[in-house]
């Protein structure tokens, strides 16, 4: 017994080291963001003894972070709402309604899951530009919805399959038509799945850089992550301000992770086990 316990502690040691390696890079960045340039050159590692927000303020004011942040918030919010709406409608139809061709249509949605963006990005850029949607909010929103819809439909369909049909039958006897069932039963009952899928989609859209680079070329329409890539050129000599910019971009996601960790992990796990 005691031998086993010692073995466990021995295994815990490398795991603790790894945990440190997971967190340290961000701690380091946050620490550097609080230093003056001079302090950073003299000693990169020492912890700051007080929080200096000058660099954060400088990064925030100088590179249009506020505009990038607004762009990201608008595009991500609209994209996620549309994804949840279309995804839950499709999921309801595919899981609970019986009609000719339902399994074929479900397979189509699954197949779309395996078409990566890189494979369709050239023709997509052309379609978007023909439609006059390049460098517009609706264009980027549409691209995000198309990109993450297959995953959303897939998860919503699996979730709605677990809802007992008796509940729907009861609602129909009460005089609801299909749309009433969707609005009054499926949407409220789907809330946990919608929350989980919604957060995951928000992270995917928020973190994207390729789609946004491709479809939002002008500086004025940049999303936050594309904005971060432009930081490097601007502050190559001023590491603390660069670190402050990176910190600003990381904070919203970190806050979401701290509060909604379980939903995020559940969503990832559900995507894996329902296949």
């Amino acid at each position: 017994m005691s031998r086993v316990r010692w073995g466990r502690w021995l295994l815990a040691l490398p795991m603790a080291v790894l945990a440190l390696a997971t967190v340290y890079p961000l701690v380091f960045t946050a620490n550097v963001a609080m230093k003056t340039r001079r302090d950073y050159v003299l000693d990169r590692f020492s912890l700051v003894d007080s929080l200096r927000w000058d660099n954060v303020a400088a990064a925030w004011n100088s590179v249009g972070m506020a505009r990038y942040l607004t762009n990201s918030v608008v595009v991500v919010t609209v994209s996620v709402l549309l994804l949840l709406l279309f995804g839950s409608m499709a999921g309801f139809a595919l899981s609970q309604l019986r009609f000719r061709g339902s399994s074929v249509l479900f397979l189509c949605c699954l197949a779309a899951l395996f078409v990566p963006f890189q494979v369709i990005m050239v023709p997509l850029a052309r379609i978007m530009s023909d439609a006059g949607l390049v460098d517009t909010y609706p264009g980027l929103v549409l691209a995000y919805v198309a990109q993450f819809l297959p995953f959303t439909i897939f998860l919503m369909t699996s979730y709605y399959r677990t809802i007992p049909p008796e509940i729907i039958d009861a609602a129909r006897i009460d005089g609801n038509d299909v749309y009433g069932v969707y609005r009054r039963i499926m949407l409220p009952l789907g809330a946990p799945a919608l929350l989980s899928v919604g957060i995951l989609n928000a992270l995917f859209c928020w973190n994207d850089v390729l789609i946004s680079l491709l479809l939002m070329p002008s500086a004025e329409h940049r999303t936050l992550m594309v904005g971060v890539t432009s930081l490097r050129g601007q502050y190559s000599a001023d590491i603390p301000t660069f670190a402050a910019g990176v910190l600003i971009a990381a904070v919203p996601v970190l806050v979401i992770y701290l509060f909604l960790q379980r939903q995020i992990a559940d969503g990832v796990a559900a995507g894996a086990t329902k296949g």
Binding site: M89, C108, C109, A112, P123, L149, I153
Partner: peptide, 16 residues
């Protein structure tokens, strides 16, 4: 119910 999803997937995934 499926129309918006199918339209988007057809136009912006399979067609490209």
């Amino acid at each position: 119910l499926l129309a918006p999803a199918l339209l988007i997937l057809a136009l912006l995934r399979f067609w490209p």
